[in-house]
């Protein structure tokens, strides 16, 4: 997902008897559905895991602007260009909400950005794939944002207050993203045979990377179990993946596109689609930094930060100079 394979520092999930009093009270509070706020007691691993998860999520929103930015100057109409700009601006906003939520846990914004730029912090594997045609912008909105929504809606109910509130804001804005993507796909699929072929090509290239976004099967993962106990992960990777496939297949059928999976078949007994496994080796390679665009994405981020440094510093100098006569009345 936008946060993939988040390390919880746990070797196994501990039972209530093994926790100390503070930790037990903390877990009971989570079990009762009471939100944890920044100043409340929390186990160190919970804090660190959330910093990893929220910052990874924030980095994904920020880096996620880059594949789409590739098409701003080449959008087919002024209207599509304005819409794409608005979407990209939303992604920046989502990144900012999430950075703020992470900062309440005691990490600074500068530290998070430094970790992204050094390669220490991760972002979602999906943004390391290239956007080769305009149809990719449609496929990203429809599939990538569709998959993101699937993960983010449950997170609105997660145990950490600032994260849940940030997610609520993000979810309100995200369905615009998915719809604008599907709208691009509809336009292409109702267009010329060449345009429809572009849409099919985009689906062919994005399908498996999107299926991988949910992360590897996690039934055996101790981190997933720990995150579930802390209510910062509410459904397993496989549950969300199944839900995504079930939801997306009819949408592809409406477009008259075919999903590039030979194993895809409705299973009447289960009431779900059966589907094939993605190439998990590819996923782990992308996570390690060997995807098609990893180096380019990071280099672009680092360059943007470096090129803007003089301006950010100038603003601080300006603020320091004008600090005194800065008493505006509240409206």
């Amino acid at each position: 997902m936008y946060a993939q394979m988040v390390d919880t520092g746990a070797k196994r999930v501990r039972a209530a008897e093994e926790m100390d009093a503070d930790e037990r009270a903390f877990q009971e509070r989570i079990d009762r559905g009471v939100k944890i706020e920044p100043k409340d007691f929390m186990p160190e691993h919970y804090r660190k895991t959330l910093i990893r998860q929220i910052s990874q999520h924030a980095h994904s929103e920020i880096v996620g602007q880059l594949p789409e930015g590739n098409w701003v100057t080449r959008a087919p109409t002024l209207k599509r260009k304005a819409i794409l700009l608005a979407k990209i601006q939303d992604e920046a906003g989502h990144g900012l909400y999430l950075y703020s939520a992470a900062e309440t846990l005691g990490i600074s914004r500068d530290q998070m950005l430094a970790d992204l730029h050094s390669g220490k912090a991760k972002y979602s594997s999906i943004f390391n794939y290239p956007t080769l045609s305009w149809a990719d912008i449609g496929a990203i909105g429809w599939l990538v944002d569709g998959a993101a929504i699937m993960n983010q809606i449950p997170l609105c109910r997660c145990s950490f207050g600032p994260y849940a509130r940030a997610m609520t804001r993000v979810c309100k804005e995200e369905s615009f993203h998915q719809r604008q993507g599907y709208d691009i796909m509809i336009a292409l699929c109702r267009g010329t045979p060449e345009q429809k072929a572009m849409a099919q090509d985009a689906l062919n290239r994005w399908w498996w990377p999107v299926v991988m976004m949910f992360g590897p099967p996690d039934e055996q993962s101790v981190h997933s179990a720990q995150s579930a106990q802390w209510k910062i992960k509410l459904f397993s990777n496989d549950e969300l993946r199944q839900r995504f496939v079930d939801q997306t297949v009819p949408q592809a059928e409406y477009l008259g596109l075919s999903i590039p999976d030979q194993a895809l078949k409705w299973n009447a007994q289960r009431g779900h689609y059966d589907f094939g496994q993605p190439d998990w080796n590819e996923f782990f390679e992308v996570i390690k930094g060997n995807g098609p665009c990893n180096r380019d994405r990071l280099a672009t981020r680092v360059k943007a930060a470096a090129d803007g440094a003089w301006f950010r510093e100038a603003l601080v100098a300006h603020a320091a100079k004008h600090q005194a006569p800065q008493a505006q009345k509240a409206a």
Binding site: L96, S100, R169, V316, H322, Q323, Q326, Q328
Partner: peptide
């Protein structure tokens, strides 16, 4: 509604408008 970083109050209002 949330928080943000800005060098001064004026920029904070500007950024708040955008965010």
């Amino acid at each position: 509604v949330g928080s943000l970083h800005a060098p001064d109050a004026e920029m904070a209002v500007n950024n708040a408008r955008d965010v």
